[in-house]
């Protein structure tokens, strides 16, 4: 028994090491004084300072955050609507098709999604002159299409776990359908919507492939910038940037965990 538990513990330790040593080394080397990213030259925070003075990095970080925020909000609105349609409207005509089309962006290779969206934007521009240039708008649209699929799935699963007679009871007590959505449905699926928002935010912040396809000159998101910088060799300021992103993402995950735990406690 004792032996087996030690075995299990060592597997656990190995697994965590596999996951977190690369991240830890990035954080560790971000405090490296040396110009060479992989040689230790003493503790320093100079790369953080340099990062903050680098307009290019700040600009693309701000662009990424703006996109991620807009995408998460739009995806939550549309995804929630789609999830409700799937789980509450019964069997309408074309439901299976609709359900398949909602979830297909999740399994579609990003290269295909990116390419098809690029072709769409280009031909739209030729036809109606919009979008005049590719950047914030096109990336936001592209990200929303696949991020809302995730939100729809999360919301739908939450809704199907929820007792439908709650909404019926509200209607029975005199609530009109739209009122019932705001009084009963939305408060009860709020945790799922928050989780969906955070997921959409992360997905958008994270995406390199689709953004590369649909963005134009002068608009590069943070992942695009990092990727192009790394092509020229890893510089220590990239480590500092990565550390900040890790910090940012883990805070987000912690908040999501806290929100969902609280919601679980509330629903008993």
């Amino acid at each position: 028994m004792k032996k087996r538990s030690r075995f299990i513990l060592s597997i656990l330790a190995f697994g965590y090491a596999f996951l977190y040593i690369p991240l830890a080394s990035v954080i560790f080397y971000s405090f490296n004084d040396s110009r060479l990213a992989t040689v230790w030259g003493g503790f320093s925070t100079r790369w953080y300072g340099e990062l903050l003075r680098n307009d290019q990095v700040l600009e693309s970080a701000f662009l990424s955050l703006r996109i991620a925020f807009t995408v998460a909000t739009l995806a939550t609105i549309f995804g929630t609507m789609a999830g409700m349609a799937l789980s509450r409207f019964g069997r309408f005509r074309g439901r299976t098709l609709f359900s398949g089309m909602i979830t297909s962006p999740m399994v579609m290779p990003e290269v295909i999604t990116g390419l098809s969206l690029l072709l769409l934007f280009v031909s739209l521009q030729q036809l109606i002159g919009w979008p005049a240039q590719r950047g914030f708008g096109t990336i936001t649209i592209a990200h929303t299409t696949f991020a809302m699929a995730y939100v729809a799935v999360i919301v739908q699963s939450r809704l199907s776990a929820m007792d439908e007679s709650l909404e019926e009871a509200a209607m029975d007590l005199g609530g009109r359908p739209l009122r019932v959505v705001f009084d009963i449905t939305l408060p009860l699926i709020a945790p799922a919507m928050i989780a969906g928002w955070l997921l959409a935010f992360t997905l958008s912040l994270d995406d390199l492939v689709i953004a590369s396809f649909v963005s134009g000159p002068g608009a590069s998101t943070l992942p695009m910038l990092i990727f192009s910088k790394v092509k020229l060799g890893v510089t220590p300021d990239i480590n500092a940037l990565a550390t900040l992103i890790i910090l940012f993402v883990s805070t987000g995950v912690l908040i999501a965990w806290w929100v969902s735990r609280r919601a679980q406690r509330q629903s008993g």
């Binding site: 007792d163 007679s165 709650l166 019926e168 009871a169 509200a170 209607m171 029975d172 007590l173 005199g174 609530g175 009109r176 009084d183 009963i184 408060p187 009860l188 509330q266 629903s267 008993g268």
Partner: peptide
């Protein structure tokens, strides 16, 4: 007539009590 216009109220088998409202709020909803 839709349910919200009928002079009828129902007690559901699952009770369907709104979990995010207090007892008082539940009763006051209608």
């Amino acid at each position: 007539q839709p349910p919200y216009e009928r002079p009828v109220n129902m007690m559901f088998q699952s009770y369907a009590i709104f979990p995010h409202m207090t007892v008082e709020k539940n009763v006051a909803y209608g």
